[in-house]
Design a protein around this nucleic acid. Structure first.
Lengths: 136, 136
DNA sequence: AAAACTTTGCAACTCGGTTGCACCTGTTTT
DNA sequence: AAAACAGGTGCAACCGAGTTGCAAAGTTTT
């Protein structure tokens, strides 16, 4: 059992099962955002639905956030420690069309938008597509 | 046959078949972006794959643009006349979580982003989620 | 009018996501 | 300690969006 992952789970009110610890560990070691199918590949013996529900639980409890990068599969990445997934916490994501990896640009927060009057904002999904530094 | 739709198709180098004229007409009359499944509902007698390929053709020829609003289905909307779908042509989209409609905010272009060095930009998908003016 | 090419319709399939249900495991209650 | 309970996991099946191969229908070219 990893003390740190364990703590992290508890800090977000998630019961730390063996499965969850393993998933969180993979997510933490992962530098780029990962999709459910990709996660499945890393866990040959775990069931798809278990992994699915694990991700959903993590997302509900704001341990991870999801990114729809337009690749057809939703990807997930661990949130910053202080993140509450409010509009202020949102950052820009980068999708590399060459290596198909999705990066969290944590330093770049999504610009403010002045919506037409009558429209209210809840959240923003901003994905920049291009070529990443490794593929150039 | 509608002269205007016909002209519009030709101007983008698309052979104006009956099917395509009808689809373009629906897309033009539509105030919000529409998905393939939604389009299917409007064409009871047309085949899914035909509609699918029609949308793809339109998109290739830059008559329409696609929006991934995170709803699970890609939506399409007619481009502005001068649009070439370059990064400069890109505008923000608004997805209403109540009525599930997606609006093109044509007046609001996507803000510029300073990517980390080594990353190059090709396009941007920016979707703001919230409540639209009709649902408030 | 025949040949060549394009568009359309049908059917089947892929793949990501999702759910119902049974089983199992660990915890609480009696 | 046994029984009851709650929650987590695995299996199987399903859904819905998107996609493709192929044959039929329609157009264009020669």
């Amino acid at each position: 059992m990893d003390k740190d992952t364990d703590k992290k789970l508890k800090s977000r009110n998630i019961k730390p099962t063996a499965m969850r610890e393993l998933v969180l560990k993979v997510l933490t070691e992962q530098k780029t955002a990962i999709s459910l199918p990709e996660l499945e590949d890393k866990f040959v013996y775990a069931d798809k639905s278990t992994l699915y529900r694990t991700l959903k639980t993590f997302e509900d409890k704001k341990l991870i956030h999801s990114i729809d990068d337009g690749s057809g599969a939703i990807r997930y990445a661990v949130c910053q420690d202080t993140c509450e997934c409010n509009p202020d916490d949102l950052h820009v994501h980068f999708y590399c069309t060459s290596c198909k990896q999705t990066f969290c640009l944590n330093e770049i927060s999504v610009p403010e938008i002045n919506l037409p009057s009558g429209f209210s904002l809840k959240s923003v999904n901003m994905v920049v597509k291009g070529i990443c530094i490794n593929c150039r």
